Computed example of a mutant assay.
Amino acid sequence: MSATVNPTVSRRRLGSELRRLREVSGMTAQQVAERLLISQPKISLLENGRRLVKPRDVRDLCVLYGVQDQRLIDHLMQLATEAGHQGWWNSYGDIPYGAYIGLEAEAAAIRLYEPLMVPGLLQTPAYARAVIAGTIPHVTPEQAAARLQVRLRRQDRLGAPRNPLRLWAVLDESALRRVVGSREVMRKQLAHLTHLGAQPHITLQVLPHDVGAHPGVSGQFSLLEFADATDASVVYLERFTSDLYLEKRSDVRLYGDMYAHLQAQALRPDSTRRFINEAMKAYAGPG
């Protein structure tokens, strides 16, 4: 668990507890909205951890739900206060995927599938710089520098001396073949992958082109799992203008099954290492 306050996680835990208390009270989200003179979608956003909950709102909801336990009320008020704090990523300006960074920072394990690029957690600085420059139209040098710093700081989880992030990544062969930056950038990036793949808490698998159709053809996704039993697993789908977070058990189970199929179809880790070393030969020499 993180040593510092994580506002994303605090907001998510608070929302989950408020949903539980509402359900125990027997009230629907619509009934709560009508009593508090707010919209029903706002209640849903609060309970899903997608909207900041002020301590005053927590107090009003506790009264409405008939909560008598003062220790519980104090705990919820503390979560509301923590949820209003700034995450470390906020100091870098407008980072659009801040909610994901907050979840990633608290995750104990992540399983991800990437069809086109090397995942951000595994990128070298040169590769990351080329990805940012090539995928974000009209990005300013200042914005690009901030995003690069955030991306590299996220990677600290992989090298943490205690409880490093457990990462399992399945990469489509395309991620190894697409030349990002230059041939030299790619050669060093693939060498970096082989080094990371040798770490005991990181597992890499490559999905070769000749596998054909597979469950990942619809695009990238990540499954985040947490050490705290109160934090439900999350499926994260990255999109250009907005991201999607799935928390329903049926959705998480579906993507878990999809990932199991990808793991079964991909090369084993030892074969993946040989595959990457062979792919690296294509980037030998100048270019």
Rank of each mutant, 00 (worst) to 15 (best):
S25L: 00
S222F: 06
H201M: 04
S25I: 00
Q30D: 15
D231G: 08
V131C: 12
I95D: 08
G285F: 06
Q155F: 06
R162D: 15
N277Q: 14
I276D: 00
F221C: 08
V185M: 08
S218D: 15
I38N: 10
L18V: 10
V217H: 14
W168R: 12
T140R: 07
T194A: 02
Y113P: 03
G93V: 05
L121I: 08
E278K: 11
A175G: 06
L246S: 07
E173C: 03
L176V: 03
A279L: 05
I136N: 11
L224V: 10
L52G: 12
Y113R: 10
S218V: 11
N48S: 14
V9Y: 07
V32R: 03
P96G: 11
G216D: 06
P200A: 08
V217Y: 11
R13F: 01
S271Y: 01
I202G: 01
S16A: 15
Y92G: 02
D243S: 15
A130E: 10
R151G: 05
L171A: 05
V235K: 02
Q155C: 04
K188H: 15
G93Y: 08
V53P: 00
H201V: 03
L267E: 05
A33T: 07
D172F: 01
W168F: 12
G49A: 03
R183M: 05
V118I: 15
R20C: 01
E225Q: 15
K54C: 00
V24R: 15
N6F: 04
T8E: 13
L196E: 09
G102K: 04
V63I: 13
Q263Y: 06
E278C: 00
A3Q: 14
L165C: 03
A80M: 02
P96R: 12
L224D: 08
S233H: 11
L237K: 09
R22K: 10
L21Q: 14
L18I: 11
E184H: 13
L45H: 14
A229E: 14
R157P: 02
E173S: 05
Y283V: 01
A145R: 12
R111A: 12
R162C: 03
G15K: 04
A227G: 14
H192S: 09
Q189K: 07
T203H: 09
P161T: 11
D210R: 13
Y113V: 05
E34G: 03
Q199A: 12
L204T: 04
T124S: 05
G93A: 07
R162H: 14
N6Q: 11
P119A: 10
A282I: 03
L158W: 07
H261I: 11
T8Q: 12
Y97C: 09
Y97L: 05
